[in-house]
């Protein structure tokens, strides 16, 4: 799996929002690589910049973006607006959190799905056939009948399936799923995660899953990146991160989640910093139980250990 082709590469990505009197550094220098068949989870709390990161990857982000985003050998940052529009959907697509606002309420499901094909040059009859097939693929029963349904006639889980169908319609290389199950009930969440997992396998898709829930990430991903205050503080294989989290924030996140009755949780003090004025040095130091003087002054440099990347001064000491 490790020798697979690289699908996407992100280098020194920065996204700044100019708010007049201050600049919000939502994403501040992030690097990662996605290989074919990868399901890469980006985990972080609200305000960590994870959604901004997702949007900037398909250049839908209103902020100032700099760095390199190379998908399938093309640097998205260098494409014109027209080129990026064609690139979206056919090579890279996105699934949003709220299924009800991602579909047009006055258009039939079938019309919306077929539009994806017709816009990219398919004939109407071909678009129809492909749409029906697609709905079947994402597990929607009575696909032909559903083509005639309006979004409000479908449940949240079904809508999310339709959106997934639209996202994979043109066989993209990379699908970005931004909290795809946060608006759904747990039993439905399990169904959708299962679907995503199967699609990744059978279509050879690469997926970036943005989530706040470590459990969701553990469910379907093979690699994971932990974001904190605009930085990726730890990246690595899922198993190795879960068995041996190196960054104190990763550890804290894992001890924060109630898992059965195992004594009192160890909550992290404080909250996520203001991204227009992040703390100096390591951004996590005010909340870190292991912080030393060096953490307050110097920003830690990325440390590569085998397949792992950690942003901490005290790796190995703690």
């Amino acid at each position: 799996m490790h020798q697979n082709n690289v699908v996407a590469e992100v280098k020194n990505l920065k996204v700044y929002y100019d708010m007049g009197d201050r600049t919000i550094r939502a994403v501040d220098g992030i690097d990662f690589t996605i290989r074919e068949g990868d399901c890469f989870a980006i985990v972080g709390e609200s305000g960590s910049g994870k959604s901004t990161l997702g949007l900037s990857l398909i250049r839908l982000c209103p902020g100032k973006v700099s760095g390199e985003i190379i998908v399938d050998g093309v640097d998205l940052m260098k494409l014109s607006d027209e080129e990026i529009r064609k690139f979206r959907c056919s090579k890279i697509s996105i699934i949003f959190q709220e299924p009800s606002s991602a579909l047009n309420p006055v258009m039939k499901i079938g019309e919306q799905l077929m539009e994806v094909f017709t816009v990219h040059g398919y004939s109407k009859s071909e678009a129809y056939e492909r749409s029906v097939k697609l709905l079947k693929t994402v597990g929607i029963p009575e696909a032909e009948k559903r083509m005639q349904s309006y979004p409000h006639q479908l449940s949240g889980g079904m809508k999310q399936r339709v959106i997934i169908a639209m996202a994979i319609a043109l066989n993209p290389r990379l699908v970005i799923a931004d909290e795809p199950t946060s608006a759904l009930d747990v039993t439905i969440q399990a169904q959708i995660l299962n679907l995503l997992k199967n699609l990744t396998k059978s279509y050879g898709l690469s997926t970036i899953l943005i989530t706040h829930d470590m459990g969701v990430a553990a469910e379907i991903c093979n690699r994971i990146g932990i974001m904190y205050a605009g930085k990726m503080v730890e990246v690595g294989e899922l198993e190795s991160i879960f068995s041996n989290p190196m960054h104190p924030y990763t550890r804290a996140l894992m001890t924060c989640i109630p898992r059965g009755l195992k004594g009192l949780l160890k909550p992290l003090p404080g909250h996520v910093p203001d991204l227009s004025n992040p703390p100096e040095g390591c951004r996590f130091h005010p909340r870190c139980p292991y912080a030393k003087d060096v953490c307050k002054k110097e920003e830690p440099k990325p440390l590569h250990l085998d397949d792992r990347l950690v942003l901490c001064h005290r790796v190995g000491e703690i």
Partner: peptide
């Protein structure tokens, strides 16, 4: 069904949730 649907940090086998559909 509820319990087996909860994503956990342990990758336990969850036959029940995976073979369930319907809302």
């Amino acid at each position: 069904l509820l319990i087996s649907s909860v994503p956990t940090l342990y990758m336990a086998k969850k036959f029940f949730a995976q073979n369930h559909s319907g809302v």
